Simulated assay, not measured.
Amino acid sequence: MDLEAVHFDERGLVPVVVQDARTGEVLTLAYANREALEETLRTRRSTFFSRSRQALWRKGETSGHTQEVVEVLLDCDGDAVVYRVLPQGPACHTGARTCFHRPLLEGPKDLGFVLGQVYATIEERLRTLPEGSYVAKLHRAGLDRILKKIGEEAGEVILAAKNGSPEEVCHEAADLLFHLLLTLKEAGVTLEDLAQTLWERHRPREG
């Protein structure tokens, strides 16, 4: 990034929107000075400038809840920046996943957000293998059992579509997506891998 294109304000700061790269969820609004932005680009770890402490603030330095930066974007006017990150733990000092956890107006959840949340839950279940967990049960049964569920759920989607019931299709498709996400995790495929593959296939081509 050409930092000469960044328009820092009279305090030498630029607002930074931190966004979960998996789900698109906005995690934090913070500020960066030139040094913080340079360090973020160099280390690929979220770094900001604390206005209260008048010092650099490296996310996770004390809490351990670091953020791996996968992309940094500058807006059209050059006066705001987005860090797209892979968070390791909650973003908010309260322990909430995002600092924006107090809704003033509820809205529908984006599919990318929901898939990211489900994938993260699957990761946690596979890491801890709690008793009574459906994910843990399928994992213990082995990959063949999981793949069999993919076939079963795909068949259910086909039947639901043939029946012409949108509600039934939605229900069965959700089951299929859940088992597909589990298969991706078992196969070592991340949502970022899948998104990149889809983007390479379908992104607009110039000319």
Rank of each mutant, 00 (worst) to 15 (best):
Q88C: 13
Q88N: 15
G89C: 07
P90T: 08
P90C: 07
P90E: 14
A91R: 07
H93I: 02
H93V: 02
T94K: 03
T94Y: 04
T94M: 04
G95N: 07
R97E: 15
R97Q: 11
T98F: 05
T98N: 08
P103D: 10
L105N: 15
E106V: 12
P108D: 15
P108I: 12
P108V: 10
P108M: 10
K109T: 14
K109G: 10
D110G: 11
F113T: 12
V114K: 07
L115I: 09
L115H: 11
G116R: 02
V118K: 10
Y119L: 06
Y119D: 09
A120Q: 13
T121C: 15
I122S: 09
I122Q: 09
E124P: 11
P130N: 14
E131H: 11
G132N: 12
S133H: 05
V135F: 04
V135C: 06
A136G: 11
K137V: 08
L138K: 03
A141G: 05
A141E: 10
G142Q: 01
G142L: 00
G142C: 01
L143K: 02
D144S: 11
D144Q: 09
R145P: 03
L147M: 00
L147Q: 00
I150G: 01
I150S: 02
I150H: 01
G151H: 00
E152V: 00
E153D: 06
A154H: 02
E156D: 08
E156T: 01
E156G: 02
V157T: 01
I158A: 11
I158W: 09
L159I: 06
A160Q: 02
A160D: 04
A161P: 04
A161G: 06
